[in-house]
């Protein structure tokens, strides 16, 4: 009965949260991520197997489609909702310690900016890749990042901006983070950014899409 994990992978990718959700129309009335996750656990798959072999895989597939232009924001958000519906069943095992997350990523839209859909998409992908995400929301100051870093000293920081007038605020925040915690890795992203800008402000990583961010994070785990 391996195919339940395959089914779960598909419903996560397609964004089918539960049986009652009307989206996507062609899967109407069928089991969604909620039901299939519960069933998989009941069948004896370990939470880690369900996470890695179905949920992470499903999110990876939608991330690939997004990068290639085959899927867009609505499909990503629906997939993330399906992921969240499945995670309800997995989360208790994080707390008990039987499933390990890869690490913690603190994320926020930079101070002065309140556009946070882009940041949310990246946060969902990172969470979907098996990381704990601490989402600080929008208009995030250095002080808020610092407070989160004090709680999670080993965390990686991700910052986003949508406007050319606000992306400049990333520079000061990155510098201050590096000053108090030189080892902290800072990732940046957002529509007006570029690799040049990332290098210029002293951040460690830039990706034009969410998939690049999860791949970078996974490479960090492997090299550690």
């Amino acid at each position: 009965m391996v195919d339940i994990l395959e089914k779960l992978t598909i419903v996560v990718k397609r964004g089918k949260a539960d049986k009652n959700s009307p989206y996507p129309p062609d899967l109407k009335g069928q089991d969604g991520a909620d039901e299939l996750t519960a069933e998989a656990l009941k069948m004896g798959f370990t939470p880690d197997e369900v996470l890695q072999k179905a949920l992470v895989k499903g999110m990876h597939l939608i991330g690939e489609d997004f990068s290639a232009g085959r899927a867009f924001v609505p499909e990503m958000l629906m997939a993330a909702k399906a992921m969240k519906a499945a995670m309800k069943h997995i989360e208790p095992f994080f707390k008990s310690g039987s499933v390990k997350q890869k690490g913690t990523v603190i994320m926020g839209t930079v101070q002065g900016d309140l556009h946070d859909i882009g940041k949310n998409l990246v946060a969902m992908m990172i969470e979907g890749a098996g990381w704990k995400v601490v989402d600080l929301g929008s208009d995030t100051s250095f002080e808020k990042f610092l407070a989160a870093l004090e709680e999670y000293p080993d965390a990686i920081v991700g910052m986003s901006a949508l406007l050319t007038t606000t992306m400049v605020n990333m520079k000061g925040i990155t510098e201050k983070i590096k000053e108090v915690s030189p080892k902290t890795i800072v990732m940046v992203g957002g529509a007006p950014l570029s690799q040049d800008f990332c290098t210029q402000i002293g951040a460690d990583f830039y990706s034009p899409d969410p998939q690049g961010a999860t791949e970078y994070l996974d490479a960090l785990v492997k090299s550690a």
């Binding site: 867009f72 924001v73 609505p74 958000l77 629906m78 309140l114 556009h115 946070d116 859909i117 949310n120 929008s138």
Partner: peptide, 18 residues
């Protein structure tokens, strides 16, 4: 009114993109 501060903005926006 600032639209982004509406708690449902993200869902409404996604729905209207289809």
């Amino acid at each position: 009114l600032s639209l982004e501060t509406n708690p449902d903005f993200q869902d409404i926006f996604a729905e209207n993109m289809i």
